[in-house]
Write a protein that binds this DNA or RNA. Structure first.
Lengths: 225, 225
DNA sequence: TGTACATCAGTGAACGCGCGTTCACTGATGTAC
DNA sequence: TGTACATCAGTGAACGCGCGTTCACTGATGTAC
């Protein structure tokens, strides 16, 4: 007597059949196809639905079994991009080190992570500036979340009462702003070339050191001339 | 006896006829149409040639009397965007003031200028991250030019020999990075609302002050822990 | 175990549409005599 | 000044193409008995 698996969310990802397995394989193929098509020159909004389905090896109409339209696929990509990054950042925050080492190791981890996940970061940074309203707002929210978390962390590194929470936000935003621009520069690095990667790590770490030096001298409300 | 004007580059911009006057009026209409179409959500690469000519009030084929294609119009927009900005920056640099006032007045002028020329800045910032290769490289060059000029200026504000030229580049890039991100935030401000504009000026000025405080403490090669 | 039916991911054809580009043209402006 | 011709910005029609979306379908997988 065969025991039938109950229809549930535990769909396998394997090569073999099953409605759900097939479904999730095709869905993943569409996501991968979109990411791969976002090469050097392409914006997400310039991708066509037909192009994505062709690269994924299915017929255009099959797309609608998985997403309402391209917008919906875009939001899925935003979500995937930041879900992994948030986890990465959570790890980073959990190891408090002396500031100087914290900067170097954080930057080093970040640069490597961006290069490893370059397809997601390329997508996210382009959509941040040029995407459709919903996608752009979703990414803006993610960034605001990073700024807030960073502001919280900074509070611990700074002498009490010398910096207001508004100043902490301002400083956290300064750091995140520079990391966003650095991300763009990291994505422009040629593949391989570990020596260029090392130079980039060094550059960004020095920039952060300048900022933290400034913070250590900062007195809220003061500093005329 | 009528005196005929020699065929020359001195074409008028008026309402009246003449081959050259008409030519330059249509050309300008195409440029204005493209800028106007680049509203909240649109990327330059998402504009169609037919759309631009329709908005400019000419037939699609007329486009080719002025540009080889949309790419060529894009490069023209980059050029126009930065020609004016370079002039603006040249003015700014020519008035040396005490640093604190220099920061506030520069930021204030810049914020107002971005809002006034928002169509150009919106175009440029989107193309910087998402544009076609040629456009993107053109904008990257313009930004590198600003970084170099700023590095030169910074050399005068800093104690001699305390900062190498590589560090000056690094710091100038930090400043420009933050200004690019600030530009994006300025463009997101609602029209009108001078009080929000004032808050933004204040925020950016404080960020630059943090950086310059950091620079004043910076010692090349030193600063472990 | 075997059969008959239900589910549903993916198919393939069709649709109307806006696209970039081409081409011979029109008619106002410019010039030579 | 008047006429005949040249120039050339803009026209309007045509082309083939890839697009997003729809729809009835197919056939493998899942389930009830």
């Amino acid at each position: 007597m065969a025991v039938y698996k109950k229809k549930g969310k535990e769909a396998g990802e394997g090569e073999e059949g099953g409605h759900e397995a097939r479904r999730s394989r095709t869905r993943q193929a569409l996501i991968e196809a979109a990411l791969d098509l976002l090469g050097e020159d392409r914006t997400f909004s310039s991708l066509s639905l037909r192009e994505v389905t062709k690269a994924a090896g299915v017929v255009p109409a099959a797309f609608y079994r998985h997403f309402r339209g391209m917008d919906s696929l875009g939001l899925e990509l935003v979500d995937e991009s930041f879900r992994a990054l948030r986890a990465e950042m959570r790890d980073l925050r959990s190891k408090p080190l002396p500031t100087e080492q914290l900067i170097r190791s954080s930057v080093s981890i970040y640069v490597r992570y961006v290069r490893e996940q370059h397809r997601y970061f390329r997508f996210a940074i382009r959509e941040f500036f040029s995407g459709a309203t919903t996608t752009r707002l979703a990414i803006r929210n993610e960034l605001r979340f990073f700024v807030s978390e960073l502001a919280t962390d900074l509070a611990l590194l700074v002498p009490e009462r010398s910096v207001t929470s508004s100043d902490l936000q301002m400083i956290a935003q300064l750091v995140v702003n520079n990391m966003v621009m650095a991300t763009d520069q990291i994505l422009a690095l040629p593949a391989g070339h570990p020596e260029e990667e090392a130079l980039m790590i060094d550059l960004v770490a020095r920039q952060l050191r300048v900022i933290f030096l400034g913070v250590s001298q900062w007195k809220t409300g003061g500093s005329k001339a």
